[in-house]
């Protein structure tokens, strides 16, 4: 593996137990401080690919490497943020975050400090004692992000993390997310996002992989070269958008 590559999938394929081949020969890699997105039509296997990258679903064939080391089981070094916002209703915000710190040999005080700091990073200072049902959808998703970050991940896998938020909340969180994730206080080195929302993808990504076909393959790869913060009014934004649409439409 070349230096600077954080996560790489080499020739990975996945077949459902029913025999249906979902995707095949997928090669994806992420670099340091790189935000990568995967787009594709509905039902093509984007969420499945994300889970194989974290070994939550082992690929049928091919290998995944994290900083040159083969991934053979799920670990908090590659952390997943779900599409449906998953927080434990019987735990407060801080307890939800501390879940990621269990078994790491930390004292209760250390766990509390890390969880508090992480909640502060995601903008939830003062909400440590709230239960999920006392929070808005946006706050819950921040708790889920804080939990993922508290586990000191190297890679964050995000499965349509804004899809269940109202547009205003989603836009606010999108604007902050890049700074939250690549904050010097976090251990994060790469992010892989799966999304249907192409505006969101272009707003956040450094690189975009386009999936299409059946079984799905990577049909295009685009490097997004636009300064941040990005605006959809930027003419380059529309150009990239057209390119992605062009790759998405023909095959399926």
């Amino acid at each position: 593996m070349s230096i600077g590559v954080i996560l790489s999938a080499v020739d990975i394929s996945y077949k459902f137990p029913s025999g249906k081949q979902v995707f095949t020969d997928i090669n994806i890699s992420t670099g340091e401080n790189e935000f990568v997105s995967i787009v594709g039509p509905s039902g093509i296997g984007k969420s499945t690919i994300l889970r194989t990258l974290g070994y939550l679903i082992p690929p049928t064939s091919g290998k995944v490497f994290l900083m040159g080391e083969e991934v053979k089981k799920p670990s908090s070094r590659i952390s997943l943020i779900h599409q449906s916002i998953a927080t434990f209703p019987w735990m407060t915000a801080i307890d939800n975050v501390k879940l990621a710190l269990i078994g790491k040999g930390l004292s209760q005080n250390e766990m509390n400090d890390i969880a508090r700091n992480t909640l502060e990073t995601v903008g939830l200072k003062g909400a440590e004692g709230l239960y999920p049902k006392e929070m808005s959808g946006g706050m819950r998703q921040r708790v889920a992000i804080a939990r993922a970050l508290a586990g000191s991940p190297v890679v964050l896998l995000m499965d349509e993390p804004f899809v269940h938020l109202d547009e205003l909340t989603a836009e606010g969180l999108r604007q902050e997310i890049y700074d939250i994730l690549f904050n010097p206080l976090t251990t994060l080195k790469s992010v892989v996002l799966v999304s249907h929302n192409l505006d969101e993808v272009l707003e956040l990504s450094d690189r975009v992989f386009v999936m299409n076909g059946s079984p799905a393959k990577i049909v295009d790869e685009l490097i997004i070269e636009m300064p941040r913060p990005r605006s959809s009014r930027d003419s380059r934004f529309s150009t990239y958008l057209d390119k992605i649409y062009a790759s998405l439409t023909p095959t399926r």
Binding site: R51, G54, L56, P74, S75, S76, I78, S79, L80, H82, S84, A86, F88, L99, A100, I102, G103, R147, G151
Partner: peptide, 17 residues
């Protein structure tokens, strides 16, 4: 929910935890 199982796997929680 499957999300909870994935979180348990992801954070490598032991049986008793």
């Amino acid at each position: 929910p499957s999300e909870f199982w994935e979180i348990m796997e992801n954070h490598e929680l032991g049986f008793f935890t």
